[in-house]
Amino acid sequence: MEIEFGVLMDVREEGYGGERVDEVVVADRLGFDGVWLSEHHLTGDGMLPSPLVMAGVLAARTSRIRVGTNILVLPLHHPLRVAEDAAVVDLVSGGRLTLGVGQGYSEREFAAFGVDRRRRGALLEEGVRVIRSAWSEVAPRPRGKIPIYVAGVTAAGLRRAARLGDGVIIYCATPADLIARRKLLDEVVDNPPPLICTGIMHVDEDADRAWADAAPGIAYLEGEIASYGGTEPPALNREDYLVGTPEDVAARLIAVHEATRFVHFAHWLRLPTLSHDAAMRSLELIAGRVIPAVRAGVSR
């Protein structure tokens, strides 16, 4: 099966208008296989709290690209509500929804919703069970089978994700961390389901300009992710990230595939602080030169 490529839509308070949606329309036209939406709450920049609402918007503006959540924090929601909303999005999109869920980790989010963070693993398991049951027993029913992918990070989380999900989602900013997570998954699970990798990738004809454009956004993302988990952000090293010329990034992504065997790789379509023009240059180059080179390289 040919490996797939997708984009992560970064939506913050200033980006709910036209440009971000237009960028996904371009990704659809360029042949990307999926667009993914994350979920966060109580952020200073208004990062997307309602991924299924935005999924419906994107479904209406696109024609073929699959629309997915990566991830929806299931313990913060009533699973029947999620099942109904997901079924509606799937129906209006013509069966293009993928539901990616996870247990979450942010203490402030769980406190705000009055959910016991210590029960998040159990709530995730129960939620997936309820959703699958609702889709078979309660109208509206999805057009077909909606894939449920489950995110994991730790050994216990990866075991749970492999047991519950049609696929396992891993987000890591760097190739080294993606490879380490794949190794851990193989250590704790026999015959795991397909792996969906999401991370950072940005390309330009000029490698120095690629890094100059991407570095502020990477620093912002790493800082935000660290703040959610109450940790310190890592120091930025240029060689750690999939940033550079199309040829260099393609070669490195082929190596990532050899080590992780991902079936789908998604990257931030537009990093925070990145201009629309820089994001579109990168997207065109990834579609035209990175993806064909990677597919050719992994098929040998």
Rank of each mutant, 00 (worst) to 15 (best):
D186L: 15
H257G: 11
R96T: 01
E84V: 00
L236S: 04
R261K: 06
V53N: 10
P246W: 00
F110I: 07
I200G: 01
S50E: 08
V256P: 08
F113A: 04
A87V: 04
A162F: 01
L178I: 04
S50R: 14
L52Y: 01
P246Q: 06
G46A: 05
V73H: 07
E13I: 15
L76S: 05
L274N: 04
E137C: 08
A55S: 15
V53D: 02
R81G: 11
F262T: 04
P246Y: 07
G17R: 13
P142E: 01
A55F: 05
D240V: 08
L285Q: 08
R117S: 14
T273I: 09
I170P: 11
R29M: 05
V26C: 12
R159K: 14
A155F: 04
G95D: 08
L158W: 00
H267N: 13
P147C: 04
E13T: 07
M1Y: 05
V11L: 15
D186P: 09
L221M: 11
N237Y: 12
L164G: 09
S227W: 00
S63L: 10
S133F: 05
E4F: 07
E23I: 03
S106W: 05
R20K: 01
G144D: 07
V298N: 14
L8I: 15
R64W: 02
G199R: 05
A122W: 09
F110D: 06
D33G: 11
D208N: 05
S227G: 09
V256C: 07
R289S: 12
D277W: 01
V57N: 04
I196V: 15
H41E: 15
V89I: 15
D166H: 09
G17E: 07
R119A: 11
I170Y: 04
P75Y: 10
S63D: 11
I65C: 12
E14G: 14
G100R: 03
V89A: 02
V7L: 13
P147G: 03
S282T: 01
F32W: 02
R117C: 10
V53T: 09
R96F: 00
R66K: 13
V7F: 13
A212I: 01
L178Y: 00
E19G: 11
R270N: 07
R141C: 07
A161C: 06
T69M: 07
D166N: 07
V249R: 14
G165C: 11
W211V: 06
A296G: 14
L8G: 10
T231W: 12
A155V: 01
E258G: 15
D204W: 02
T154Y: 08
W268L: 12
E126Q: 11
E39N: 08
H40M: 08
S282L: 00
I131R: 02
G68L: 04
A55Y: 09
L283F: 03
F110V: 03
R209T: 08
S275I: 09
V128D: 09
Y220K: 14
K145F: 02
D90S: 02
A212E: 12
F113P: 10
G244R: 03
S136V: 00
P193G: 14
A161L: 11
D45P: 13
R61N: 05
L123V: 03
S38M: 13
W36M: 02
P49T: 01
A83W: 05
E284A: 13
C197K: 07
E187I: 02
A278D: 15
E247M: 14
V298S: 11
F262K: 03
G94D: 01
L271R: 10
E187A: 03
V24M: 06
P193H: 12
R132T: 00
D22S: 14
V73C: 12
